[in-house]
Structures are given as structure tokens and as C-alpha cells.
């Protein structure tokens, strides 16, 4: 794992932030505000996972009509209760990707590609 977590997760957070912006949420409002705090904590090396999990659950429960636009990888990185929003086959697949990612010098996307090609 040669890439930092922040480098892997920031693009996913940005992607979700765009989905929420398209939904009409202002950048300091509700889930977008929380997401911004998560990003800051992640970049500062502080605890971020619980807050990300809370934010993603908030999105699924308050805005379930955009649930299908939440990056699935982000649900895996958040873990805990967010795993309820992944189906069994996805959890199995992410476990395999995670193992490749943790034990090689590949980026997350490279680990995804490698796992899916096997």
C-alpha cells in the first residue's frame, strides 16, 4: 500500500460531494458540511472513519433516492454500519480487493482492476 488513505479516499469524497451539490445542498449544509469535516480530518491524519460512516448513513436514510449514486468504494472504506448498504457479493469482492491492496504496492484502483481480472 504505497498510496496514502487520503489520496485514495479524497476523490471518492469529492464525487459524493458533487452528487449532494447536484441535489441542491449548499456546501455547509447537512451531509455536505459533514463530508467537508471528514475530508479535513482525513487530510490532517485525525479520526475520520466514524464521521464518514455517520454521514453516509445520513445520506441513505434522509436522501435514499440518491443512494445509488453513493460511491460503493466509500461504503467499504467507512465500514461498520455502512456495510449494510452493500450486498453479500459486494462485501466478498471488497474483502478480496482490500487484501490485494493491503499486501501490495498497488493503488486502490489498481487493486480493484487486479482482483476483477483474476
Amino acid at each position: 500500500m504505497k498510496y496514502t488513505l487520503a489520496a485514495e479516499i479524497n476523490p471518492l469524497i469529492n464525487s459524493l460531494d458533487k452528487v449532494l451539490a447536484d441535489e441542491g445542498l449548499s456546501d455547509d449544509e447537512g451531509s455536505r458540511g459533514s463530508l467537508s469535516s471528514v475530508k479535513q480530518a482525513l487530510n490532517d491524519g485525525k479520526e475520520w472513519r466514524n464521521d464518514l460512516a455517520d454521514t453516509l448513513q445520513q445520506v441513505f436514510r434522509n436522501l435514499p433516492h440518491i443512494g445509488h449514486k453513493v460511491p460503493r468504494d466509500l461504503l467499504w472504506f467507512a465500514g461498520s454500519e455502512c456495510l449494510h448498504f452493500l450486498d453479500d457479493a459486494e462485501i466478498e469482492r471488497y474483502a478480496s480487493i482490500d487484501e490485494v491492496w493491503q499486501t501490495t504496492q498497488l493503488s486502490w484502483q489498481e487493486a480493484v482492476a487486479k482482483t476483477l481480472s483474476n
Binding site: 441513505f60 436514510r61 435514499p64 443512494g67 445509488h68 460503493r72 449494510h84 448498504f85 452493500l86 450486498d87
Partner: peptide, 15 residues
């Protein structure tokens, strides 16, 4: 929790 089980498939199914 009941909703979560259905929404887990929202990327493949219209839920």
C-alpha cells in the same frame, strides 16, 4: 435496518 437491506441493491435495482 429494513430499508438498508433493500437500498443495498439500489445501484442495480430501482428501489
Amino acid at each position: 435496518n429494513w430499508e438498508s437491506q433493500a437500498l443495498a441493491y439500489s445501484n442495480r435495482v430501482r428501489v
